[in-house]
C-alpha cells in the first residue's frame, strides 16, 4: 500500500511540477520570444554575417562564407584596415574623454544643485536637464554655427578676451574634442540628475557625525560622499560609455567623419562601409569587434569596481 501511495504521490508531484513548468514556460514565452526575435536573432545574424562576403542590397542567400577574412581585412594595413583602426581609436578617445569629463562634472554640478544653502537648486536642476531633452538635430545645427571658424560666436567671444580664434571642427587636431564638448553639453544634465539621486540616498547623520568629529568639507566629500556614490557612479559610467560608443548623430550631421577622418567614429564608419558601400560582411565584422570591445570595457569596469569594493571592506 505504502508503495502504491508513494508512487501516486510521486506521480502527483511530478504532474504538478510538470504543470508548473509548463505554466512558467507559457508565461515566460512572450518575453523571451520577443527578446529572442528582436535582440538575440539580430546579434546572431550579425555574428554570422561577419564571416560572410555579402552585399547589403542582396538577400542572405547570396552570402558566401569567407571564414575570418573580414576580421583579417579590418586589421590589415590597406585602406580598409587603416580606416577601421583609426575609427576604433577615435571611438576610444571620444569615450574616454566623454566619461572623464562628464562624470566629475556631473558630481560637481550634483553637489551644487543638491546643497540647501542657497535657493534655486530645483531651477538649476531643470535647466541642466533641459539640454538632455533638446533633439540632437537642433543641437548639431546650433553647434555647427557656434563652432564656425570665421562667423562663429564662440571665436568672437574668445576674441573679446584676447584669445585667438580656435579651429574647432575645422582641424583634425580639435574636431573630435569639439564633438566631445558638444556631447558633454548635452549629456551632463542627465548624469547630474543621476548624481543628485545618489546624493539623496546618503544619510545626513553621517555628515553630522563627521562634522562632530571635526571633518572639513573636503574630507567629508572623500570619506563619505564619494564612496557612497560608488554604485551611482558605476551605473553612470556604464551608461556614459554605452552612449559614447554609440555616438552617431553629431558626426553624421556636422562633420561627416572629417576632416581627414578625425571624427570618423565606428558607428558612422560602419554605416559608411556596410550601407553606403554595401559591404555587409565587413560592416558586420566591424560591428562584432565593436560589441566585443564594449563587453570587455564594461567587464573591466565592473572588475575594477569589485576590486575597489574588496579593498574598502
Amino acid at each position: 500500500m505504502g508503495g502504491y501511495w508513494g508512487t501516486q504521490a510521486r506521480d502527483e508531484h511530478t504532474s504538478m511540477h510538470s504543470t508548473q513548468h509548463r505554466s512558467a514556460i507559457t508565461m515566460l514565452a512572450p518575453a523571451t520570444g520577443l527578446i529572442g526575435v528582436f535582440i538575440l536573432l539580430p546579434m546572431l545574424l550579425t555574428i554570422w554575417l561577419s564571416f560572410q562576403s555579402w552585399s547589403t542590397q542582396t538577400g542572405f542567400e547570396t552570402a558566401t562564407f569567407v571564414g575570418i577574412q573580414n576580421f583579417i581585412d579590418i586589421f590589415a594595413s590597406n585602406s580598409v584596415g587603416r580606416d577601421f583602426k583609426a575609427a576604433l581609436v577615435n571611438t576610444a578617445i571620444y569615450t574616454v574623454l566623454s566619461v572623464a569629463i562628464i562624470l566629475p562634472l556631473s558630481v560637481l554640478l550634483g553637489l551644487l544643485v543638491h546643497q540647501k544653502l542657497a535657493p534655486g537648486g530645483v531651477f538649476l536642476r531643470t535647466v541642466l536637464f533641459s539640454t538632455y531633452m533638446v533633439p540632437m538635430i537642433a543641437v548639431a545645427l546650433v553647434f555647427s554655427k557656434l563652432y564656425s571658424p570665421t562667423e562663429g560666436p564662440l571665436n568672437q567671444i574668445l576674441g573679446w578676451i584676447g584669445i585667438p580664434p580656435q579651429t574647432w571642427l575645422s582641424s583634425p587636431q580639435t574636431a573630435l574634442v569639439s564633438i566631445v564638448l558638444l556631447n558633454v553639453w548635452q549629456q551632463v544634465g542627465y548624469f547630474t540628475v543621476l548624481a543628485v539621486a545618489g546624493l539623496t540616498q546618503i544619510p545626513d547623520s553621517l555628515y553630522e557625525a563627521a562634522r562632530i568629529d571635526g571633518a572639513n568639507p573636503v574630507q567629508r566629500f572623500f570619506a563619505i560622499t564619494l564612496p557612497l556614490l560608488g554604485n551611482t557612479l558605476l551605473f553612470s559610467a556604464v551608461i556614459c560609455i554605452i552612449n559614447a560608443v554609440q555616438v552617431f548623430e553629431p558626426v553624421a550631421l556636422i562633420t561627416q567623419g572629417g576632416p581627414v577622418n578625425a571624427t570618423n567614429v565606428l558607428t558612422f564608419h560602419i554605416r559608411r562601409v556596410g550601407i553606403e558601400r554595401a559591404q555587409g560582411g565587413l560592416g558586420s565584422a566591424m560591428a562584432v569587434t565593436l560589441m566585443l570591445a564594449l563587453i570587455v570595457a564594461i567587464a573591466a569596469l565592473f572588475a575594477f569596481a569589485r576590486s575597489r569594493e574588496g579593498k574598502t571592506q
Binding site: S144, S148, P149, T150, E151, T167, L169, S170, S171, A252, L253, I254, T255, Q256, G258, P259
Partner: peptide, 20 residues
C-alpha cells in the same frame, strides 16, 4: 584648411567663407 569644412548639406564654413 580651417575655412574649408563642409557639412552633410554641402554647406558650412567653405561656403560661408566665399559668400562673405
Amino acid at each position: 584648411p580651417a575655412m574649408a569644412t563642409a557639412d552633410a548639406n554641402t554647406t558650412g564654413p567653405f561656403l560661408d567663407s566665399f559668400v562673405s
